[in-house]
Simulated scan of single mutants.
Amino acid sequence: MVADHLRPAADLVAALPPSPAVWCTGLRKRYRGRHAVDDVSFQVGRGEVVGLLGPNGAGKTTVIKMLLGLVHPDSGEAMLLGGRSGDPAARARVGYLPELFRYQPWLTAYEVLTLHMRLAGISLTERDRRDGLARVGLGERAGDRVGGFSKGMQQRLGLAVALVAAPELVVLDEPTSALDPVGRADVRDIVLSLKERGVAVLLNSHLIGEVERVCDRVVILDRGRVAASGSLAELLGQRELRLHLTGLTPPAESRLAETGVVEREGDWFTVALPADDDGVLVPDLVRDLAALDVRVHAVEPARISLEARLLGILRAGEGGAQ
């Protein structure tokens, strides 16, 4: 019970927004005189999916290990779910799928999940454990020994282990590296379902298309430093619309110009869309052009891809280094 003279302060604290799921500032780590991570700072909000991108050797896995307290940083600070990264109470609420892992080959999938349930200090019914395996596509292989699993099946089991304790934060280091297209789609659906439930996800992946589909924000690392970060809209820039039109009249040209800056190449027109487009601008534009007797042959949305943006940032960094 809170004393009366402390109640205003308690009410003030209760009204504060929850701390970020991940917060780090100034993380640095050197190996053999070389900076593996150099002044990395970012955060992951509750219920947010953040992608960690960059080439091999950029420091992504080292950052993840420092966040989880598996590697001690030379300098900088990190917090998980409002607690220090090394605090066991904070880490108990984190699910982690490492890039490289091995389970005892003589155990069945069900036994592996049961073992990690006990290590986490939680109690799950047999039904819950089997549902956890079914969720990652291993429902019919629960009784099979892990030694006979393909790499993709082991990856699915690792994901089930990461989720076994219903974590508030999930850290996935290359979760789809060994999966086929169906498996990647399954992981994507799981990540989106976690987001819907308010679970934060930090995702390290080389599959840029998967990152683009599920992430709210992206942090790009290059040679141990943050080369760029932001929402997909911020990183990818303004959207454009390409239209193949014939029979264009002066009133139709005016209608196009009302939408945004127009560039023309023959019968193809590229229109810059405003940032506050609520989704009705394009169908309204096509409707109005048709009403002005313009023949609309094609309508194509256009925006730089995340892959192209990533390559541009990395190549610009190489030029700066030279």
Rank of each mutant, 00 (worst) to 15 (best):
291 A>P: 15
271 V>P: 04
295 R>S: 12
272 A>Y: 05
228 A>G: 05
297 H>W: 15
222 D>C: 05
275 A>N: 01
296 V>R: 13
230 G>M: 08
246 T>C: 11
293 D>T: 12
249 T>I: 08
217 R>Q: 07
286 V>M: 15
241 L>V: 02
247 G>Q: 04
243 L>W: 02
285 L>K: 01
268 W>G: 03
241 L>N: 02
246 T>K: 12
291 A>H: 13
278 D>S: 11
267 D>M: 12
253 E>V: 03
296 V>C: 11
284 D>H: 07
278 D>G: 11
247 G>D: 13
262 V>N: 02
279 G>L: 07
259 T>I: 07
264 R>C: 13
235 L>G: 00
300 E>W: 13
227 A>L: 13
267 D>E: 15
279 G>W: 04
248 L>E: 11
223 R>T: 04
290 A>K: 12
300 E>R: 15
219 V>M: 04
238 Q>R: 06
222 D>L: 05
274 P>C: 10
224 G>I: 00
302 A>K: 11
257 A>W: 00
277 D>C: 06
293 D>V: 08
217 R>K: 07
249 T>L: 12
301 P>V: 06
216 D>E: 02
230 G>P: 14
222 D>Y: 12
300 E>V: 14
290 A>N: 14
296 V>L: 15
262 V>P: 10
252 A>R: 05
301 P>F: 12
299 V>P: 07
238 Q>P: 00
268 W>C: 09
296 V>K: 06
281 L>T: 05
260 G>H: 00
282 V>R: 06
273 L>Q: 04
224 G>P: 04
246 T>L: 14
275 A>P: 08
233 A>G: 08
284 D>N: 13
248 L>D: 10
234 E>P: 12
274 P>I: 01
239 R>Y: 01
226 V>I: 09
233 A>H: 05
229 S>Q: 14
246 T>F: 09
297 H>P: 10
238 Q>G: 02
293 D>N: 14
220 I>M: 14
263 E>I: 09
253 E>L: 11
284 D>P: 05
237 G>P: 04
230 G>I: 11
251 P>D: 04
231 S>N: 08
264 R>H: 01
238 Q>W: 00
225 R>G: 00
267 D>T: 09
219 V>D: 02
240 E>S: 03
226 V>R: 09
261 V>F: 13
237 G>L: 05
283 P>R: 01
223 R>S: 04
298 A>D: 15
220 I>A: 07
297 H>S: 12
